[in-house]
């Protein structure tokens, strides 16, 4: 990043202040800024009641909302449970895998 030092601003001198050059962001930072979504996919083995309980526990959803998502998974094959920044999304996916659900982390397109 460019900087204006004291010498350049001495009385009588002329100076232009350059616009700051934005440093190139690292790839990691770019990825963190992209919205991500937590997707749960259908699985014929997991019980519907079990999946509902997991959604309630992991996301703190009330039973009705958890059931809606469970039915969406069952009927449409997938449901987006949460979207936002990457770190919490990864944490949610990790928890869902701990409960043995088929869950993935996807970039919002």
């Amino acid at each position: 990043m460019s900087a204006v030092n004291a010498g350049q601003l001495e009385k009588g001198s002329t100076s232009t202040v350059e616009a700051p050059i934005k440093e190139k962001e690292t790839r990691g930072e770019e990825e963190l800024d992209v919205p991500w979504q937590v997707v749960v996919h259908n699985d014929p083995v997991n019980l519907m009641t079990y999946v509902t309980m997991v959604f309630q526990r992991v996301f703190g959803y009330p039973r009705e909302k958890a059931e809606r998502h469970m039915l969406e998974v069952h009927q449409k094959g997938r449901s987006i449970l949460w979207s936002g920044v990457r770190e919490p999304a990864e944490f949610y996916v990790q928890q869902l895998h701990g409960y043995l659900l088929l869950a993935t982390l996807e970039k919002v397109v």
């Binding site: 990864e90 990790q94 043995l100 088929l102 869950a103 993935t104």
Partner: peptide
Amino acid sequence: RLFSRPSAEKKI
């Protein structure tokens, strides 16, 4: 199945 892929992205 027990250790399913968390993403389509290889790095993740």
